[in-house]
Computed example of a mutant assay.
Amino acid sequence: MAAQFDLDALPYVDKQIDEPGMRTQVDKLIAAELKRMPKPRDPSALFPDIDLFKDRALLQQELERVRKGKPMEPTLDLSRYQLEPPSTSTPDNDNNTNTPLTASEELPEGKILWLKALGNADAQLEQQNQRILNLELIQKFGANAWNVHNYQLEYDLTNLRKVVDDKKGEVLELNKQRKRDQLEVAESLQRLEAKWAEMISATLQVEVASASLESELEQLKAYEAKLVKELGIPLESADSTTSMAS
């Protein structure tokens, strides 16, 4: 259970802070009180450690690779994004040279190469068409979309500023109410403080008078004992004689 602190402060009534050396003493007391108060929790402790992709080893390996900044293995094959004509020669493994294709050799293998190049060209053409279409869509609708997005951001900003202004107004009104409440009870507090001072003074006077009477009583007792000793009358007899005389 969190510790509760009773903060007693009347800044609009108490003027002792203006006395020399009082502000330094107050700062020391505040620092000592802050040391006693529980420290705020570390924000990172509010969120437990999360093991991402614990059931997917492949994704864990990829996450670890990205975390360490290592390049992707194997690297992406970028040849599919290049538009090159098919090769018209075949490598000669014996002599490490490129041998031009003959007419008879070109028919089966050359056709496959040209078909692959044609498929790659079709893919590149479709990709360019998609890019052109996206650019046209952005040119047609992008400005309005950004305007709507900016309007939403401005609307959110206006709402946040309104919330901040409302909170500042509440804080200001609270401080005004505190000042009014303290000034209203200031006269009563001053009257009670004056009465307390009078009672303390009266109590001190009673204590001084009591001490004076006790001292006088001790002196009388000493004087009585001296008389009894000089007259030779026992103390009990002196008391009885005094009682009969009275």
Rank of each mutant, 00 (worst) to 15 (best):
L118K: 15
L118Q: 10
L118T: 10
L118G: 07
G119F: 02
N120Q: 06
N120V: 05
N120L: 01
A121M: 10
A121R: 03
D122E: 08
Q127N: 11
Q128M: 09
N129R: 14
Q130H: 03
Q130D: 15
R131Y: 08
R131L: 15
R131C: 12
I132K: 02
I132N: 01
L133H: 08
N134E: 14
N134H: 13
L135S: 14
L135M: 15
E136P: 01
L137G: 03
L137P: 03
I138E: 15
I138D: 15
I138C: 04
Q139W: 06
Q139K: 05
K140Q: 12
K140A: 04
K140G: 02
K140M: 06
K140H: 05
G142P: 00
G142H: 12
G142T: 05
A143W: 03
N144C: 01
N144M: 05
N144R: 05
N144I: 01
A145L: 09
A145M: 05
W146Q: 03
N147W: 09
N147T: 01
N147V: 06
V148Q: 05
N150P: 02
N150Y: 12
N150E: 07
N150V: 03
Y151W: 04
Y151T: 09
Q152W: 13
Q152L: 05
L153V: 12
L153C: 10
L153R: 10
